[in-house]
Design a protein around this nucleic acid. Structure first.
Length: 492
RNA sequence: GGCGCGUUCGUCUAGAGGCCCAGGACGCCGCCCUUUCAAGGCGGAGAUCGGGGGUUCGAAUCCCCCACGCGCUACCA
């Protein structure tokens, strides 16, 4: 059996989207699980859609997730170059040999004629496809015209019989050859189309399993016949189910798809992303739902990949992200909190940040957030001298809008806290002081404490109050309570 | 229109003839814990396995038809 070699072959037309990256993950996992190799190849054959920043983004996305490649951009390898734009002679040579064998031909049809042809086909309700006008141009005439006219090279698809695709995920799929048309293999700019490109490169790079998305199933007959015509051994075919947006359409910008790197930007962890993507089409067994890159590396198998498309569910990603946040080592968590504070806290906060503070808030944050981008908003109040800006209604929101009560709560808290001096200003003393106002107020702490949360932190969904006030210090804490009191009083 | 793929709780999935009047996870609901919010623990609701025919003693699992969804139908990938 051939050694396992798989590849991720994106076209650099933008940042890699998650559907794409999932194919990379599965290809990588399969290679690793079988002691094989994984390579990266850039299919930059569409000059018009080329986006400069794509390749770095692709590499960055893979690296972020922990997917490494044995050959390809950045690492080189014996089958380079790994950019299709740098392998043009290879495709041209292949196309020419196909012409020589009568298995392909030059097509001189103009875009206008092709348009007209399709329009006529549509009107006549006939299947669209190239009508074969140039199929039988004699070789001598073809050679002569090639000197002065633009042309593409079309591959002669068989017109009878069937082409069978043996797919690892869904079994055999039969296509009627009569329904296939002669596709363009080499474009007039000398670049290959995807069809010629994959076949030539997967062969030359000794790829054992061609793994790609579902949308390629319908063009698989082209590839299969190309392999046959060239006398090359075809790889094992694997077509992965599509990832759909909540609207059940193929994931796109519109349906909420964002580039893989955007997820990092939005506070997702690579582990969560990997775990999430892994279960879009694959499962480990009948009960496991938490899975790491290492598990994938050990157990990934196409036998457990389902053929049906999956809908992207952001709720699940959030859950997984929270899970991995809680699973991090303390050191890494402190480091992460530090980074996200450094990056996301307002510029008005002086840098470098107080590391003691970061260290103190990290454990408080951990159980409370699902995404890293929630960190800065939650703790910003600790870093600024000024109280947070919040609507005065926020103070009494949980009190049913009873602003007068909010004022009384604030007064009571102030009365108990003010006597504490600088040295006594610690979590336990603050807690005792605030609990002491339960009696005079004749209310449970939990009923009125949100007023103090808003006063101190600017919102009612923050990290624990007593610790926060201790970290804030006596002066800033009292000042904020007074400000809140004035604010409430004013809106009475 | 043609061709192709797909169809199990809202979602991701387990299930390859009896273990399934369908299991796990997210989400949802309730209770517990609790200084807010979470997290955590416990429990619950939620799928006549798209519909209809077969085959079989027995079908989510095999066959056929239908419906619906999606993909492809470019000198884009």
């Amino acid at each position: 059996m051939k050694p396992v070699r798989t590849r991720y072959a994106p076209s650099p037309t933008g940042d890699p989207h998650i559907g794409n990256i999932r194919a990379a993950l599965f290809s990588w996992a399969f290679a690793r699980a079988n002691g094989g190799q994984f390579l990266l190849r850039i299919e930059d054959t569409d000059q018009a859609r080329l986006v400069e920043t794509s390749v770095p983004a692709i590499m960055e996305s893979l690296t972020w997730l922990g997917i490494d490649w044995d050959e390809g951009p950045g690492v080189g390898g014996p089958h380079g170059p790994y950019y299709q734009s740098q392998r043009l002679p290879l495709y041209q040579k292949t196309a020419l040999s196909l012409i020589d064998q009568g298995k392909a031909y030059r097509c001189f049809c103009t875009a206008e004629r092709l348009d007209q042809m399709r329009k006529a086909q549509a009107e006549a309700h006939r299947a669209p496809g190239y009508d074969g006008l140039c199929r039988d141009i004699p070789r001598a005439e073809s050679d002569r015209r090639a000197n002065s006219e633009r042309f593409v090279v079309r591959f002669k698809m068989k017109q009878e019989g069937q082409t069978i695709l043996h797919d690892l995920v869904r079994g055999d799929i039969v296509f009627e050859n009569a329904l296939q048309d002669d596709f363009v293999a080499l474009k007039s700019d000398g670049f290959p189309t995807y069809h010629l490109g994959v076949v030539v490169d997967d062969t030359e790079m000794e790829i054992s399993h061609t793994i790609r998305g579902d949308e390629w199933i319908s063009s698989a007959p082209k590839h299969i016949q190309l392999y046959e015509a060239l006398g090359w051994e075809a790889p094992v075919w694997v077509h992965l189910p599509l990832i759909l947006g909540p609207d059940k359409k193929k994931l796109s910008k519109r349906s909420g798809d964002v580039s893989t790197l955007d997820y990092r930007q939005n506070g997702y962890l690579a582990e969560a992303m990997v775990n999430f993507l892994a279960f879009l089409g694959w499962s480990l067994d009948d009960h496991t739902s938490i899975v790491t890159l290492e598990d994938l590396k050990q157990h990934f198998d196409f036998a457990r990949v389902v053929p049906n498309p999956a809908i992207f569910d952001a709720e699940r990603l959030n859950f997984l992200n929270g899970h991995y946040i809680r699973a991090m080592s303390d050191e890494r968590w402190v480091e992460t909190v530090s980074e996200w504070c450094e990056q996301r806290l307002p510029v008005s906060v002086p840098r470098p940040l107080d590391f003691g503070l970061i260290f103190a808030i990290a454990p408080l944050l951990r159980e409370r957030i699902a995404r890293l981008d929630e960190i800065a908003p939650m703790v910003a109040f600790l870093f600024s001298e000024e109280p947070m800006d919040y609507p005065s209604e926020a103070l009494s929101e949980k009190l049913g809008g009873d602003t007068a009560l909010a004022v009384r709560v604030l007064d009571a808290a102030l009365a108990e806290l003010d006597p504490l001096d600088e040295a006594e200003w610690a979590k336990d003393r603050i807690e005792a002081a605030i609990r002491a106002i339960e009696a005079p107020l004749a209310m449970k702490l939990r009923k009125f404490v949100t007023v103090l949360y808003v006063a101190a932190e600017g919102h009612a969904h923050g990290i624990p109050l007593f610790e926060s006030m201790a970290l804030l210090g006596r002066e800033r804490s009292l000042e904020r309570l007074r400000r809140a009191r004035a604010k409430a009083q004013h809106s009475l």
